[in-house]
Design a protein around this nucleic acid. Structure first.
Lengths: 124, 124
DNA sequence: TTTTAAAAGCGACTATGTCGCATTACTGGG
DNA sequence: CCCAGTAATGCGACATAGTCGCTTTTAAAA
C-alpha cells in the first residue's frame, strides 16, 4: 500500500494550503480548478488524515472539515487544540490554544474534537 | 407561542431521563413505546433545546445528541462541559469537567462543542 | 362546547458521506 | 523504454440525518 503521487492529491493539498484554514469537501470542490469526483476527494482527504498530513474536525453543522497539521505529530499530542467556526463567514480555523482536560479513571481518550462557534475577528 | 403538554413530549423526555445520557433521534425512537414520526421527534427535541430543558451535542459521527440540562441555566455558563463518546457502547455522556479556554481579542464565542472520543469505564 | 393555534403526521427533499465495481494511470522492475 | 501490478479514480447507487411545507389532529382557553 505505498502511496502514489497524483494530480488530484496535489490539487487538493494545494487548495487547503492556500486557504490557510480548515475546509469541507464541498468548499474544496468549489475552489479546485480541475473536476474531481466527490468520492475521490473524500478518499484523498481521508488518506491525508491517515498519513498525518491533515486532521479532521466535526463542526456544529455535523460536517467534516479538514485542516493542515502544523507540527501535530511532533509532540504526539495530536490535534488537541481548539477550533473556531465563524457563523458569518463560515470559515473554520485552528486556534493555538491547547485543550486541557482531566477525565475520570478508567476512561481512555482516543480523539478530541473541540469547536467554538461564534463570530470571528474579521466579521465582528 | 405557548407550549402545550402532549404525550409525545412526555414520552421523549421520559426516555432521555431514564437513559441518563445523551441520545440521538434514532436511539430515542428505538426506546420509545409509542410510534412517533421522525420529524416530530426532531421538533420536540429542538423545542426542548430552545426552552433550556435539553442541550445539543455534535459527536464525531456528525450526529446530534440531546442531553438533559442539569443546572445549565443557573450559572449562565451554559453547557460548557466536556462530553465523552464511547466507541464501543456508542453512548455519549456529559462529563463534569468544565471547558476552559481563552480566545484572541475580537472573537465572540456563542457556543461550545467539546467531545472526547474513546473507550469508557464500563467498556475497558 | 366551541374555537384557535400549537403540535403531529406524512411525504418529499437535500445534503453528507460511504461502498462496490470497472477503468485508469503511477511506478518500479526488467 | 516498456510492461505488469496495484493504487487511485470515476461512476452510480445507497444509507442516513435532518429539514420543510402542508394537512390534520388535538390541547386548552374562552
Amino acid at each position: 500500500m505505498k502511496r502514489r503521487n497524483t494530480p488530484t492529491k496535489e490539487a487538493v493539498l494545494s487548495v487547503i494550503t492556500k486557504a490557510g484554514q480548515a475546509m469541507s469537501q464541498d468548499a474544496i470542490e468549489g475552489e479546485i480548478s480541475i473536476d474531481i469526483n466527490r468520492a475521490t476527494i473524500y478518499r484523498v482527504l481521508n488518506r491525508f488524515c491517515e498519513d498525518g498530513v491533515l486532521h479532521k474536525v466535526i463542526a456544529e453543522d455535523g460536517k467534516q472539515y479538514f485542516a493542515l497539521c502544523d507540527g501535530c505529530d511532533e509532540t504526539h499530542q495530536k490535534h488537541q487544540h481548539f477550533h473556531f467556526k465563524c457563523t458569518v463567514c463560515e470559515t473554520l480555523e485552528c486556534l493555538p490554544n491547547e485543550v486541557k482536560f482531566s477525565i475520570p479513571n478508567g476512561y481512555h481518550v482516543e480523539d478530541v474534537n473541540c469547536v467554538l462557534t461564534g463570530v470571528c475577528k474579521k466579521c465582528s
